[in-house]
Amino acid sequence: MKPHLRTCIPEWRSDSLPDNTAYEAGFLVTKNSGWRDIRPVIDTKKCTGCLQCYLYCPDGTIARCGNKVSVDYDFCKGCGICAKMCRHDALRMEAERR
């Protein structure tokens, strides 16, 4: 269970607009990747799966993946907390290239 991107975006003046102030939970229509100018890169050889990065990510973009971790680059804002939390030097921040 996790808010996820929808393909169908409710348009103004369409039937999908809510007729009251309630709407479906976990309904995402935009990514946050454009906020980022640095990105975390995981060195899987050094990663011990201690999960400190997963625990401290304010955006929940680091997921447990077997006994390692993976980053959801669609929603990572590049704050760099994960790299600071990593005790094994397995996460470093790299400049985003566009």
Binding site: P3, D59, G60, R64
Partner: peptide, 21 residues
Amino acid sequence: EDEYFFGHKACAGCGGSLAVR
């Protein structure tokens, strides 16, 4: 593994969003 507070527009490195998450 579920994330209940995800895709939000808090500033990068926001402490409050980590507390909610």
